[in-house]
C-alpha cells in the first residue's frame, strides 16, 4: 500500500483546493454577513457613546478590525511567500498573490478611517508619528508587491521576486504593532491585548469582536474565491478543470449546489482509488 499523502498538502493540489473553496466559500460569506449585522447592531444600538469622544469613537468598530486584518493578512502573505520560496509550492504563491489586494484594501480603510477619526478627536487628519507612518509603509508594501508581480512578464520569476519583497517587508508588521509602546506617538496605546482585560466597556468590546470576526470571514471568502479563479485559469488545460466545467454544463450553472455535491463526490472517489 502506498503511504498516505501528508494531510496538510492535500489542498496544495489545485483540484482539491478548488473543491474546498467551492464547499467553504458560501459558508464564509453567510458567517460574515451574520457577524456584520450583529456587530453593526451592537456597535450602533447597544454600545453607549464614549465619555470623552461621544459618538465619533464608533469608527473604532471598523478602524481596528481593518488595521488588524491589514497586519494579519501581511503575515499570512509572508508565510506563503516563504513556503513558495523554499518548497516551490505553486499554491502558496497563488495564495500570497490573492491575499495582497484584500490586504491593501484593509490597510487603506484603516488609514482612511483613522484620518476621519483623527480629525475630530486629535484635531488633525494626519501626523507623521511612528504608528501612522509604519502603517502607510504597509500599504506601500502591498502595492509594491502587486506592482512587482504585474511588472515582470515571466509569471514564475515575477512571483519569486514578489515573494522576496513580501518576506523582506514582514519586519514592518511588529514595528506597526509595537510602535505605540516603543515610541511616544500621537496614536494612543493598545486597548486590546492578549495579556490583559480590554480597556473598554463590554458592549463596545463585543461589537469590536463581532466586526473583527466579520472582517476575518470576509477576507477569507474573498481571497479564497480569488485564488480559486486563479487556479482555474492556470490549470485551464488540465483534465480536472474540463471535468469541472463539463459537470457544470450538464447540471446547469443555475444549480451551483448540485455541482458542488458532484465535485466533492468526485474528490472523495479519487481519494479512495
Amino acid at each position: 500500500m502506498l503511504p498516505r499523502r501528508i494531510p496538510w498538502l492535500t489542498f496544495a493540489a489545485p483540484r482539491n483546493f478548488h473543491a474546498l473553496v467551492q464547499a467553504l466559500a458560501p459558508w464564509l460569506v453567510r458567517g460574515a454577513v451574520v457577524l456584520a449585522i450583529a456587530g453593526l447592531y451592537t456597535g450602533f444600538f447597544v454600545a453607549p457613546p464614549d465619555y470623552q469622544q461621544g459618538n465619533s469613537y464608533r469608527i473604532l468598530f471598523i478602524h481596528v478590525p481593518t488595521a488588524w486584518m491589514g497586519m494579519f493578512l501581511y503575515l499570512l502573505m509572508a508565510m506563503y511567500a516563504v513556503i513558495h520560496l523554499v518548497w516551490r509550492i505553486k499554491m502558496a504563491d497563488v495564495m500570497a498573490r490573492c491575499l495582497a489586494p484584500t490586504g491593501a484594501l484593509m490597510t487603506f480603510v484603516a488609514l482612511w478611517t483613522g484620518a476621519l477619526w483623527g480629525a475630530p478627536t486629535w484635531g488633525t487628519f494626519w501626523v507623521w508619528d511612528a504608528r501612522l507612518t509604519s502603517t502607510l509603509v504597509l500599504l506601500f508594501l502591498y502595492l509594491g508587491y502587486m506592482a512587482l508581480r504585474s511588472a515582470v512578464d515571466d509569471r514564475e520569476k515575477g512571483g519569486r521576486a514578489a515573494s522576496l519583497l513580501a518576506l523582506v517587508g514582514v519586519v514592518n508588521v511588529p514595528i506597526i504593532y509595537f510602535s505605540v509602546e516603543w515610541w511616544h506617538t500621537l496614536h494612543q496605546g493598545m486597548s486590546v491585548t492578549l495579556t490583559s482585560a480590554p480597556s473598554m466597556a463590554p458592549s463596545m468590546f463585543t461589537a469590536l469582536l463581532l466586526m473583527t470576526g466579520a472582517c476575518w470571514l470576509y477576507c477569507a471568502a474573498v481571497t479564497l474565491r480569488r485564488a480559486q479563479v486563479d487556479v482555474l485559469e492556470r490549470e485551464a488545460d488540465t483534465q480536472w478543470v474540463r471535468d469541472v466545467v463539463q459537470r457544470r454544463e450538464v447540471n446547469g450553472v443555475s444549480r451551483p449546489g448540485a455541482a458542488v455535491a458532484d465535485e466533492s463526490a468526485a474528490v472523495r472517489e479519487e481519494g479512495r482509488s
Binding site: 453607549p48 457613546p49 464614549d50 469622544q53 469613537y57 478627536t121 486629535w122 484635531g123 500621537l186 466597556a201
Partner: peptide, 13 residues
C-alpha cells in the same frame, strides 16, 4: 493636538 487615552467607556461608568 489632543491625544486621547485607550480607555473607552460610557459616561455613566
Amino acid at each position: 493636538l489632543a491625544r486621547h487615552d485607550e480607555e473607552y467607556m460610557p459616561a455613566e461608568a
